[in-house]
């Protein structure tokens, strides 16, 4: 059955605790449980290694071994360390000094860029702002139709030029149009691409140079595994990502990839996607993801939903 990390750590310490003393070896045993939980949550193994080393030092410094509740103390340290790593407050979207604020969505194939573009447009529209969507994916069959359909359903304007113009041309025309129509935001959907695809990475880097966006959001799938760091790192280095949207968090993936991405790029998570519909975008709360990564349930979210 599903055992929470708390239970596992309590189990680990109880075995030794009955002897009256908790040793460094007991602590290492407990940290092995932490490691296991984090690997199950798809946190990259290198990130896990550094993390457990840091927690070990903190635990020794905090004199966990003399504590009457070593399991709880380790949990607290682990949790706090995770929250710190994931960043403090839910970060806001940047705004341009002069509109339009340009937001680009980039990432691997199928991560949820187009859907997230529509969700952002919906969010901004609800705040009585005036977003314009731009369809710069000319490759994926019916990618433009997809964004057009979503825009129409939301009654948000869209700039598209089909699939024969180059993304850079479409983007530039979209920016002109955004200025002309007094849009507050330009949300640019780009094609999914592999981080090792030279041409496609050059293309998206070029888009960034042209658009000078305030936000370049890397859209990552919450189900992603160990390799997430490689893609995120490459995108960050080539395109300068400013934030992360973690999609498909409405499933039961633990979302450890977000922690790894944060650790290697320093880029904060800005939103989480929690469904396929346009309103399924939520602000990001580090403590909730920390609990989820540790397998301690998404209690807060559950409470809020109730």
């Amino acid at each position: 059955m599903f055992e929470t990390l708390t239970e596992r750590l309590q189990g680990a310490f109880k075995k030794f605790g009955s002897r009256g003393i908790v040793t460094e070896e007991d602590l290492d045993q407990a940290l092995r449980e932490v490691r296991m939980a984090m690997l199950e949550a798809d946190v990259n193994f290198r990130v896990v290694r550094e993390f457990t080393q840091r927690v070990r030092e903190k635990a020794l410094g905090a004199e966990v071994l003399r504590s009457l509740t070593p399991a709880q103390q380790v949990i607290d340290i682990v949790h706090q360390e995770l929250v710190d790593m994931l960043g403090g407050e839910a970060p806001k979207l940047a705004t341009a000094p002069r509109p339009p604020t340009v937001i680009m969505l980039v990432g691997l194939q199928g991560s949820g860029k187009t859907t997230s573009a529509a969700k952002l447009a919906n969010l901004l529209k609800k705040q009585r702002l005036r977003p314009l969507l731009a369809a710069c994916d000319i490759y994926r069959p019916a990618a433009v139709d997809q964004l057009v359909t979503l825009a129409r359903a939301l009654d948000v304007p869209i700039h598209e030029e089909g699939t024969s113009a180059k993304p850079a041309v479409i983007a530039q025309n979209a920016l002109e149009k955004a200025k002309r129509m007094g849009a507050t935001h330009l949300i640019v959907d780009t094609a999914g691409r592999l981080h090792i695809d030279e041409d496609m990475m050059n293309e998206v880097a070029e888009l960034r140079r042209l658009l000078q966006p305030e936000e370049v959001l890397f859209v990552a799938d919450a189900m992603a595994g160990q390799d997430a760091v490689n893609a995120a790192k490459e995108f960050h280095e080539r395109v300068g990502t400013t934030g992360l949207i973690l999609t498909k968090m409405d499933g039961d993936a633990r979302g450890g990839a977000a922690l790894s991405i944060r650790a290697v790029t320093g880029v904060p998570v800005k939103f989480i996607g929690v469904g396929e519909k346009a309103d399924a975008l939520e602000p990001f709360y580090p403590d909730r993801l920390a609990s989820r990564i540790l397998g301690m349930g998404d209690l807060l979210t559950l409470i809020e939903k109730a």
Binding site: E40, A41, D42, L108, Q109, G110, L194, H195, I196, D221, M223, A224, G225, Q226, D227, A228, N230, A231, G251, D252, A253, R254, G256, A257
Partner: peptide, 30 residues
Amino acid sequence: TTGQNGLQQARTFTGAVGVTGIVLAKLDGT
């Protein structure tokens, strides 16, 4: 690129409609 959740996906889809085979897409990445 899917991590550990893939196993749960396979388990649940199999439970529902009896999966007979897997296709691993996007193996051209890293």
